[in-house]
Design a protein around this nucleic acid. Structure first.
Lengths: 196, 196
DNA sequence: TTTTTTTTGTACCGATCGGTATGTAACTGC
DNA sequence: GCAGTTACATACCGATCGGTACAAAAAAAA
């Protein structure tokens, strides 16, 4: 048997970046094969078809993205500084270093929901996992006494998620720094500190 | 001269709905002409090309949408109830009556920013107008004494806009009522009432 | 080396994409 | 009714879309 001349993970990563930047519809097979540096028959033999490749790309994205968010929230033990650094990192483009890239899971929801049930579900499940990460972090702050009691960790986590999604979309236009900073600082007032 | 057999505004409205539901890329000329109930030569004679039609559709959308948001905010004189009813109305699908439709301006940002500068600019300008509406409403609440003093109306308006955008995207998946309600109620805690 | 198996590059497929040429139908002004 | 003008429907255009047939090439198994 002849071995593959390309690395599957590496090719998948390139595909993911194309979908990330362009969305499903606007990502053409020509651009995909070019950026993946493989020819169409190899692509089809390995990933099935364009839909299969997108599914794999989306899975890869959500996995990586979840890890990233988790890492960011763990870097600071206090809740408010943790969310502050997360939002600031997003504003600077996060892992990719480019704020105008947005988020593939959000783009998938926006572009393909509700008509592509399978992908809608995947992207939504990812948002739910993010909301849970947020909720857990907030719950820690409530237990530790950092946050004022009586706040609903689950609801707050969801509201913060909505803010993060909205901010991510807004960042695609690269608004000026002052705009972003004031938005972030007001968003953080969702989390009420305990009286000191 | 022979008069048009179709109403331009009506056709444009149909086109707008197609772009709204599918985005620019996935909206095909076949579907557009079908839903507009005109043939391609009429479309091209009236709107130029697909890009021209999208531009007109986006303009129409933002105009209508701005009016809608303005109307919603004016229905209640108090700030918090006003935003509450706005968010609840969004959750029920707003004007269109379908929460899974999302927002064309948001979809345009997500799908086409930053690579389509003209449309990115249009969609972003719309978001800035919305942020201004929000800011003005909040400023009213600060002056009237409804809201606790010391809050930054501009920053809060922007944060609320991010929340609205995020919520709109999430609603495309039709999350259950409890999810939506808790998200909305936590979001509204961005606005602090004055001590009574 | 030879055989066998899998991947690769090329060249191609039908379908659909956005966009248009053309002739005819429909209306206005005369 | 006639002339002039515009909009209409049909039928078509090249380009690109996603997807594949096929044969050469490359390695493992013999």
């Amino acid at each position: 048997m002849r071995p593959r001349a390309f690395d599957e993970e590496q090719a998948l990563d390139a595909a993911m970046r194309v979908f990330w930047a362009k969305g499903y519809e606007a990502a053409s097979l020509s651009e995909l094969t070019e950026k993946m540096n493989i020819r169409k028959p190899s692509l089809y033999a390995t990933f099935g078809d364009k839909r299969g490749l997108f599914g794999r790309s989306l899975d890869r994205y959500t996995t990586r993205h979840l890890e990233y968010i988790q890492r960011m929230l763990e870097r600071e033990s206090a809740v408010i500084p943790a969310f502050k650094s997360l939002l600031n990192d997003l504003a600077e483009g996060g892992r990719a270093g480019d704020p105008t890239l947005g988020c593939l899971a959000v783009l998938t929801l926006d572009e393909l929901a509700p008509r592509e049930a399978e992908w809608t579900e995947k992207a939504w499940a990812h948002q739910l996992r993010l909301a849970e990460l947020f909720r857990n972090k907030i719950a820690e702050g409530l237990e530790s006494g950092e946050l004022a009691p009586g706040q609903d960790a689950e609801a707050l986590g969801r509201a913060l998620l909505a803010s993060v999604i909205g901010l991510t979309v807004m960042l695609k236009t690269l608004p000026d720094r002052a705009f972003t900073e004031s938005t972030i600082s007001a968003t953080l007032t969702l989390l009420k500190e305990a009286q000191s």
